[in-house]
C-alpha cells in the first residue's frame, strides 16, 4: 500500500471515531469547545505517531526474536504509558508554552483506545516502519478532523433549543451519527478510483 493510500484509509475511509468507534470517550467529553478540541487532536496525533514507531520497534526487536508475542498487549500498554510520560517531560523542558497548551490532555491519552488500537492494527496488518508511522499520524489526523467538526457542531447546538431529555450527550451522539452517515460516502472505491490500490 502506498503512503497516500494509508493516509486516506485512516483519515476518511476507516476514520477511527466515526467508523471504528475508538476514542469515543474524549470525543464526547472534550468536544464542548473548539480550542480544547484542537489541543486534544494535536496532542493525540503527536502521541500516535511516536507510539506506533515505538511499539513496532519493541515488537520486531524484542518480542519476535525471543518468541514472546503473546505478551503483546501487556508490553504495548506499558510502552505507551512510559512514552506518554516521557513526551510530557520532554515538552515541559523544551517548550513550556506548548506544555501549557497540551499538558492537561497528555495524561488522558494513555487510556485512549486509538493509541493502543493503531499499534495493534499495525502489527496485524504487517506494516513496515514507515507505513507504521504514516498510519499512526493518519489515525491522529482522522481523530483531529472528527473532533474539530464535532466541536463546531456542538457550539452551534448550544445556541439552539433542544428538548430536555436530549440535552448534552444524546444530541451529541445523534449529531455524530449524521456525521458518520456523511462519512459513508468514503469507501474502498475511493482508493480504486484514485488508482492507489
Amino acid at each position: 500500500m502506498s503512503y497516500i493510500a494509508i493516509l486516506l484509509t485512516y483519515v476518511f475511509i476507516n476514520n477511527f471515531i466515526l467508523v471504528q468507534f475508538m476514542g469515543l470517550c474524549p470525543f464526547i467529553g472534550v468536544s464542548k469547545n473548539n480550542e480544547t478540541a484542537i489541543g486534544m487532536g494535536v496532542a493525540l496525533t503527536f502521541v500516535t505517531g511516536v507510539s506506533s514507531i515505538a511499539c513496532w520497534v519493541v515488537y520486531y526487536g524484542l518480542l519476535m526474536p525471543f518468541n514472546l508475542t503473546y505478551l503483546r498487549t501487556v508490553v504495548f500498554i506499558l510502552v505507551i504509558a512510559a512514552l506518554v510520560q516521557l513526551v510530557e517531560m520532554i515538552i515541559k523542558k523544551m517548550s513550556p508554552a506548548l506544555y501549557k497548551a497540551l499538558g492537561i490532555y497528555l495524561p488522558l491519552i494513555t487510556t485512549n483506545c486509538i493509541v493502543l488500537g493503531i499499534a495493534i492494527i499495525n502489527i496485524d496488518k504487517g506494516y513496515n516502519l514507515l507505513e507504521c508511522f504514516a498510519s499512526g499520524i493518519a489515525a491522529g489526523l482522522g481523530f483531529t478532523l472528527a473532533i474539530i467538526l464535532m466541536s463546531n457542531i456542538r457550539e452551534k447546538i448550544d445556541l439552539n433549543p433542544v428538548r430536555k431529555s436530549f440535552q448534552g450527550v444524546p444530541i451529541a451522539f445523534i449529531s455524530a451519527s449524521l456525521m458518520a452517515l456523511a462519512f459513508m460516502a468514503f469507501d474502498k472505491s475511493l482508493l480504486a478510483n484514485l488508482h492507489l490500490v
Binding site: V19, F166, V169, P170, F173, I174, A176, S177, A180, L181
Partner: peptide
C-alpha cells in the same frame, strides 16, 4: 456506524 451512534443517542435520551 451511523445506526450505532443514532441508537446510542436515542437510548441515552
Amino acid at each position: 456506524a451511523a445506526g450505532a451512534l443514532l441508537l446510542m443517542g436515542l437510548l441515552k435520551a
